[in-house]
Nucleic acid binder design. Structure first.
Length: 852
RNA sequence: GGGCGUAUAGCUCAGUUGGUUAGAGCAGCUGGCUUACAACCAGCAGGCCGGGGGUUCGAGUCCCUCUGCGCCCACCA
């Protein structure tokens, strides 16, 4: 507990019964009161270490996977702070986008209808009703803000309790004014430099969410399907999508395929519809698949899009944005009975209908052959993506632009990756891009695309000449705001204007977290002091989205990397070694574990996971962390309890060889931990420190225990032990502080001024070179002590029982080391007589005293 | 179909340029209330380092190959 008044010269104030229970609440409050983690914005850039913290998605529930990475980053941050860096360590919230929309819809029972006007008096019902209440986009967004604000408080409380040393005054949310302003400003600059453009083109479309989807948000899922063999006059093709026969525009085979080369240029008629389609050649056609000749539809899959574009084929789209077949057939397709049978039905129903009709007409050959094949899904969606034609906004990303691709690959090489092999994921992604970044979404709770379009005399919007706002007006909502030079009444009128109805992809804003956090254009001084940032910590699964898009936009705007280093954390696996994810239902929430084991113990578990390495959730590791925290309390109680009432002893009192040996070994631990941290390897730093700490407790403290009690005329040996205990404890507490911030702070405040987390990281200079000695003195003494313990255990005697005669044999150097620690060995082992015998081999013989 | 990672004690994991007898914790077993700590302490036992081949005086470590697991990517005929 913190003392009410601290005096540097007074004796340590040690609780009679130290405990780690309740330390979180005490120090969370104290750190807030003392502004321990507050960023000093007067610090020059060369002293600032800035961290581009991942903004968590607040509408999801927290799980241990989140805790894992954030704690590891916090350990790195704490190390940097102690080595003298001024930490710029903000926390943002990712609250824009679909997850929030879904939650608001179900929580309040509303749905967004952008055609409605804003209602300033709208209040959501106490309980969601049977039917969703349609509300305007501004009203809907207000509810999103309201709910995310509540979620964010829950998140912040957990992060604070886990001891994240972020500066909570530097927060942002990806939907707040700053973020929307930055996002819209960057979009407009991309637009002015032709890095952003709009285009009417076939795009992957989620029929449930009613929005376009980017490549980065898609995933393949293995789904059952079936090959249907269909007759096109004398040719046969195989398809998994017979419902798209009406959308067929050609058949395609490989140019070198001799089975079909004579037919290129011919036409055949589609079954049921009788539409004449050409037979064409393209190298993407795979002679091995199906019958070697395939039907091209507009559009069944992304290969169809390639064929359609490169072979300049006509368009016969039949699937609408709602996932149903259109009511009227596309040009050239007869509105006959076949069409009438499928018009307006869902894609699934249309497939059944077509199979029946094709069977009846004899155009379906044999039975459909069941297969399992990968189908593209929106990562949050439940139905396969369709391809529809729509106008969308894109940002160039090198997907169809070789020079830009090379520049971005070069940026990837400039980043320092931790661990280094994560770099290949970046390269794989960039090399696999097959189109520009589709950033527009037909959704509501996001950052609006900040443009309007003039409406011509004919009432049609002119998408080729968007009206852009002055940057000083940002953020804007073009569906409610009016462009300069127009009146509100001209919205949608001939000769007037219309606002772009879309919002941007959530990554279009998240890709700007460095700019948002660092105050780009809003706070030039802060930006100069913090950007480019130093570290981007994140998970491996969003290298293709968050990391890549952040590099891209910084490259366009600043011609630099957004940060120098990136640390990629591993996955959390559940105890059965399955990846933890909500969809699998194996998510474990952190709070119960924090309450059971304590924050330091949970942090210990997280910091045990190697950088980039998948780690199983293991409460056994947390138990060890808890044990370590308690051990720190007790060992500190002992070490500090020996100091007495005098002033804290200095390193110049260290005189005994055993004490100097300890400091020599400790100095090596400091060096190793520092090196590990410099390489972003918190786990190695922890491991070395922890190992040393346990040997410190088990061997060194046991050896000097008696000497440290003092009580002799010559106080030199006792003073040396006390000084060493004090120094070793101070150093070890600081080495452990990044991992166990609560218990180390607790102990630190028993005897030191200020927070341990603002104390200097230990360095070799503290050991005053001449006070360190030969490490073998401690190593040999510990070996002898272990041999004595072994003898007592073998004889099933108490550790307190005496040794009548102890004989140590070995080379002269070993015996000299024993002799240097003679007194401590005798005290710790309860030895009555210690004999040293020179011999080639080291051995220890203990003759135990007779029991009383 | 490509790419990356990974495989070490019953369990969870270390093992940094190749170098004594491969380490730790947990679990197990045997003991001990020892004035810092019984939520503790001491000790013991436990391993063809996934299989096979190669380089080397020497391989858990480097190379090849196979197998299992995880992740990422890929063009749905």
């Amino acid at each position: 507990m913190p003392t009410d008044a601290t005096d540097a010269t007074s004796a340590p104030r040690i609780p009679a019964k130290p405990t780690i229970d309740g330390v979180e609440a005490t120090w969370v409050d104290a750190w807030e009161d003392e502004r321990t983690y507050r960023f000093d914005d007067s610090a020059p850039r060369e002293r600032v270490f800035s961290i581009d913290t991942p903004p968590p998605t607040v509408s999801g529930s927290l799980h241990m996977g989140s805790v894992f990475g954030y704690v590891q980053t916090d350990a790195l941050a704490r190390y940097r702070r102690m080595t003298g860096w001024e930490l710029f360590y903000p926390m943002g919230w990712d609250d824009n986008g679909l997850p929030t929309e879904r939650r608001v819809q179900t929580y309040f029972g509303v749905r967004c209808d952008p055609s409605l006007p804003y209602d300033p008096d709208f209040q959501p019902p106490d309980e969601p009703g049977k039917d969703d209440i349609p509300i305007s986009r501004p009203n809907f967004i207000a509810l999103c803000h309201q709910l995310t604000a509540e979620d964010e408080l829950t998140f912040e409380a957990l992060w604070r309790r886990l001891g994240l040393s972020v500066d909570w005054t530097r927060g942002y949310a990806t939907i707040d004014d700053r973020s929307r302003r930055a996002s819209q400003r960057m979009f407009l600059r991309n637009l002015s430099r032709h890095e952003a453009y709009s285009s009417e083109a076939p795009t992957l479309w989620d029929v449930d969410y009613q929005t376009a989807v980017a490549q980065a948000e898609m995933e393949d899922r293995e789904r059952p399907g079936a090959y249907h063999r269909l007759r096109f006059d004398d040719l046969e093709i195989e398809t998994t999508r017979p419902e798209l026969v009406a959308a067929c525009v050609a058949l395609v085979a490989h140019p070198d395929d001799e089975r079909f080369s004579a037919r290129f240029g011919d036409t055949v008629r589609t079954p049921l519809f009788g539409v004449e389609v050409p037979i064409v050649a393209h190298e993407l056609a795979d002679p091995e698949k199906g019958t070697g000749i395939a039907m091209i539809c507009t559009f069944g899959d992304v290969t169809d899009v390639v064929w359609w574009r490169e072979l300049a084929l006509p368009t016969r789209s039949i699937v609408t944005r709602s996932g149903r077949i259109a009511e009227t057939p596309p040009p050239g397709v007869p509105d006959g009975p076949a069409w009438q049978a499928i018009a307006g039905t869902t894609v699934k129903a249309a497939q059944r209908t077509m199979v029946e009709l094709l069977t009846a007409s004899g155009d379906l050959i044999g039975e459909p052959r069941p297969i399992t094949h990968p189908v593209k899904f929106y990562e949050r969606g439940d139905r396969p993506l369709e391809i529809v034609t729509s106008r969308q906004w894109f940002i160039r990303n090198g997907g169809r632009d070789e020079p830009l691709r090379r520049e971005l690959l070069q940026r990837g090489r400039e980043v320092r990756w931790h661990p280094p092999y994560m770099h290949v994921r970046f390269d794989n992604w960039v090399n696999g891009l097959n189109g520009d970044w589709l950033v527009s979404r037909q959704r509501y709770f996001g950052v609006p695309v900040p443009v309007w379009y003039p409406v011509g005399r004919d009432g049609e919007a002119d998408h080729g000449a968007p009206i852009v706002p002055e940057e000083s007006r940002l953020p804007i909502d073009p569906t409610t705001d009016v462009p300069d030079g127009y009146e509100a009444a001209q919205r949608g009128q001939p000769g007037g204007f219309t606002g772009d109805p879309d919002v941007m992809d959530t990554w279009a804003t998240s890709s700007l977290t460095p700019q948002i956090a660092c105050g780009w254009e809003d706070d030039p001084a802060l930006f100069a002091a913090t950007f480019p940032m130093d570290l981007r910590p994140q998970g491996p699964e969003i290298i293709r989205t968050w990391l890549f898009s952040t590099v891209l936009r910084s490259h366009f705007e600043h011609h630099t990397l957004p940060w120098r280093d990136t640390s990629i954390n591993g996955w959390i696996l559940d105890p059965d070694r399955k990846k933890m994810s909500k969809s699998k239902g194996n998510v474990i929430t952190p709070m119960p574990l924090v309450e059971e084991f304590g924050s330091d113990a949970v942090r210990y578990w997280a910091c045990n996971g190697r950088p980039g390495t998948d780690t199983a959730l293991d409460t056994g590791i947390m138990k060890i962390g808890r044990r370590l925290a308690i051990k720190i309390l007790n060992a500190s109680k002992f070490a500090l309890g020996r100091l007495g009432d005098g002033p804290a002893p200095g390193v110049d009192l260290v005189s005994e060889p055993l004490d100097r040996a300890l400091l020599a070994k400790l100095a090596a631990v400091v060096t190793a931990a520092t090196t590990a941290f410099e390489e972003f390897d918190y786990a190695r730093a922890l491991e070395g420190t922890e190992t040393f700490f346990w040997s410190f407790c088990d061997d060194y403290v046991e050896l000097v225990k008696t000497r440290a009690y003092g009580g002799e005329d010559d106080t030199t040996p006792a003073d040396s032990a006390r000084a060493t205990l004090a120094l070793a404890l101070s150093v070890q507490l600081r080495l452990l502080a990044p991992f166990l911030p609560f218990v180390t702070e607790e102990v630190w405040r028993w005897w030191q001024m200020g927070s341990i987390h603002r104390a200097p990281w230990p360095t070799g200079a503290e050991f005053a070179e001449h006070r360190t000695g030969d490490p073998s003195v401690l190593e040999v003494a510990a070996d002898v002590l272990a041999a004595v313990r072994r003898a007592k255990t073998t004889e099933k005697r108490s550790m307190r029982s005496g040794v009548a005669e102890l004989t140590v044999s070995g080379p002269a150097a070993t015996l000299a080391a024993v002799d240097a620690a003679r007194r401590d060995i005798v005290d710790a082992g309860g030895v009555e007589a210690l004999e040293l015998v020179e011999a080639a081999e080291f051995s220890v013989v203990s003759r135990l005293a007779q029991p009383d």
